[in-house]
Amino acid sequence: MEGRDGATVEKHRVHLRPATLRDAAPATLHLLPCEISVNRPAPVERFFTPAIRRGPDGLEVSFRGRRLRGEDVMVPSGLVGYVMTMEEKGEVLMGKQEALERDSDCFMEATASFNRFTLWGLEAIPGSDAKMRGALTWPSLAAAVSRGGLPSS
């Protein structure tokens, strides 16, 4: 299969473990204005959370020596946020369903849920112009488009 950028994308099916959506505990999330080149647990509760200050104009913290200003962002109503992880291969039980599953199948599960998160900006509060704020308007627009909801109809 050809992806948008022309790279070959491996074809596989992704299954969701629905039970994990029900049990997902609420999580506190922070979205930082940077990329950290690693994906692994970090001591957020020891280094980051205690350093957050709530000033007269919103939240403040510093990360790697740079000052960040933050604000809470709500997940649009009607939607729920989930932190998803891909199950490691080999954890998948090859039982009765074996005939239905292929080696290339993947399983996802929710490890946490959220209905708000803290959006952090460099030196300034991200505000209403933030990309993320805009991105969160997409689901409602997408729903309107797929309903064919033109005002005249």
């Binding site: 970090a42 350093a51 790697r64």
Partner: peptide, 17 residues
Amino acid sequence: DPVFGFPQFVRFSWRTA
């Protein structure tokens, strides 16, 4: 710390850090 670097007591921009 691999993610957070140092406590805020440290000046991150100094060459030693």
